[in-house]
Amino acid sequence: MSKTFKIFKSNFSPLLWIRQNSGDIVSYLGLVLCISVFSVTSGGRLWSPYNIGLILESTSVYAMIALGAMFIYSMGYMDVSVGPQLGVYAIIMILIINATGSLLLGFAVILVIALIAGFMNGYVAVWLGVPSIVTSLFLMFIFSGVQILLMERTGVNTISANFNFEAFLRPEVIFTVLAVEILIVGYLFNYTKLGKYVKAIGANEVTASHCGVNTTFWKVVAYLAFGFTVALGAVFLLARTGSAGKGTGSGYAMDIMLALILGGMPLSGGMTSRLRSAVTGAFTYVLLSNGLTLSGVDVTVIHMIKAVIFVGVTLLTCRKKYGVLPR
């Protein structure tokens, strides 16, 4: 190959920089664009204190889970079981709270289940030699089944928790929890073996294992980390609604995926995975729904508009950044 880059720091090329960071740039532009367009079209309602609170609440759950999902998506895997998992966790927490009055016990129980689910997602796929999407689908069906079973047992359509979740809805609490999570995940993702290894596995699993990375072990660790964030997200989801039913959590798996894509996360994972995708993506995603509704767009066409925006963003961010160069 005759293409030697002879670019030194002295003649830094802005063009090249833009090209290498196009994904980030587009995702930030998307967020800024959403904010500015909707600020105008919503007639200022976007910035009403009530609406800001609403956006923050719904973004926080997405962002909390998306941050953990980064570990999975960086490896080039995906997870479709999040939705029913959230539903089951919410119901279990309500049942435990109503029986014992302890949220902590409820959280402890679902955390254990979430970690078991994470372990299955990570280890069983490797152990049985099936693609991880298979175990993920398996878990999705199991959790959906459990969710329906649990609700049939209660005999009502929705059950409510006898618990005051007000503290969890205070913006400063949401902000603090999210900030702490960003710090922890950011640290793990950028400064520890876990983060470096999951990116390497996503970029080239053979090379990673040739470099001494025990890929099975780190896959399981990544799924466990994800499981933790799902449990955390479940608490804040429950805090928002205070109740749960058969439909709780449905659609979350796809929402998380869309949020990550809107945030510039390559679906194939790998070295270009950036943590900010989770946060900017979650904000952009929530803003899209919220802003379109506030702007008076008919609910029936919102999905169509989202589809168009989604395809546009994907074209700009998720295409292969560089092809196989002929030599």
């Binding site: 470096k196 970029a203 080239n204």
Partner: peptide
């Protein structure tokens, strides 16, 4: 041997 989509630093340090 190499992660082509990774930079020189990531590759050497892995």
């Amino acid at each position: 041997a190499l992660i082509l989509s990774g930079d020189v630093r990531d590759n050497i340090a892995l």
